[in-house]
Write a protein that binds this DNA or RNA. Structure first.
Length: 249
DNA sequence: AACATCTACAACCGCAATCGC
DNA sequence: AGCGATTGCGGTTGTAGATGT
């Protein structure tokens, strides 16, 4: 399902992301933001190109990203918007919070497109489409199985709060309240960031760059090389006990 | 059981758009 | 205005796992 890891001519890694790489990327961006995708992998200690890091973050690691099954409503929205806009995946994605353009594109090609065809032919090809519909159901149950498996494996790669909170490994109330606290701070800081950037931090991560003078990168207490970030408070950073992520991930 | 085929989706690639100098 | 650097988007590919024969 995923590409096997390999290296390009510059020695940069390609292919599947490992949990360790995910951890490094998420930890870095959580702390310092995506101040420059091209430089970011170097400072985050990743042997990846910036493009790959951006894609991984946007499609998989970003907070609040939804994984798994699409609801009927989401399918309808995709169908309608695609009918209006065509293959404007990023525009369509902006109407579906938590879904990335890449994910929607994949979902369209594998599932929704078949439904659209089915609808347009008004059942004249019902026999042919019966297989597709059953395939969809089958695949959906596979995704569910996969998700369950991910949970059992103590949480795959994401930092999604719900996934963390739903994880069976997190059993004690102290652990849960600690996460709640961190998530609260995270949400609060996120809101602050959005105020600063007068829009979406995640979609316009560089808007603040023009207002900020970055200092030379330095090595911080958890081993990440980074510029200081003037828009993320020390309290916020401290709230993410990054060593703790070894436990979470 | 073994092999072939199909499906879903993560990731890559190329190009257009945008930005900063 | 021109140019290089960077980001964002959409098309495409590669492959693990499921299913069929």
């Amino acid at each position: 399902m995923v590409r096997t890891p390999c290296h390009d001519e510059n020695g940069r890694k390609k292919g599947t992301w490992t949990p360790e790489e995910d951890r490094k990327l998420a930890a870095y961006i959580t702390k310092y933001g995506s101040w420059n995708w091209r430089q970011l992998p170097k400072y985050a200690g990743l042997a990846r190109c910036g493009k790959s890091c951006r894609l991984r973050w946007m499609n998989y690691l970003r907070p609040n990203i939804k994984r798994g099954n699409y609801t009927k409503e989401e399918d309808e929205i995709i169908l309608n918007l695609h009918a209006q806009l065509g293959n404007k995946w990023s525009t369509i994605a902006s109407h579906l919070p938590g879904r990335s353009d890449n994910e929607i594109k994949n979902h369209w090609h594998t599932t929704v497109k078949k439904r659209a065809k089915y609808n347009s032919s008004e059942g004249s090809k019902k026999c042919n489409n019966k297989k597709s519909e059953s395939d969809i159901t089958k695949r959906k149950s596979n995704v569910e199985k996969q998700n369950a498996s991910d949970d059992d494996n103590n949480n795959n790669n994401t930092m999604h709060e719900n996934i963390v909170l739903e994880n069976s490994e997190w059993s004690s109330s102290e652990e849960l309240s600690s996460i709640d606290y961190q998530q609260d701070i995270f949400q609060e800081e996120l809101a602050n960031l959005e105020d600063i950037t007068s829009g979406s931090f995640w979609t316009q991560p560089f808007e603040v760059d023009t207002k900020i003078n970055f200092v030379a990168p330095s090595i911080d207490y958890c081993g990440l090389i980074c510029p200081t970030s003037p828009f993320i408070s020390h309290e916020f950073l401290s709230s993410f006990d990054l060593d703790h992520y070894d436990y979470i991930w």
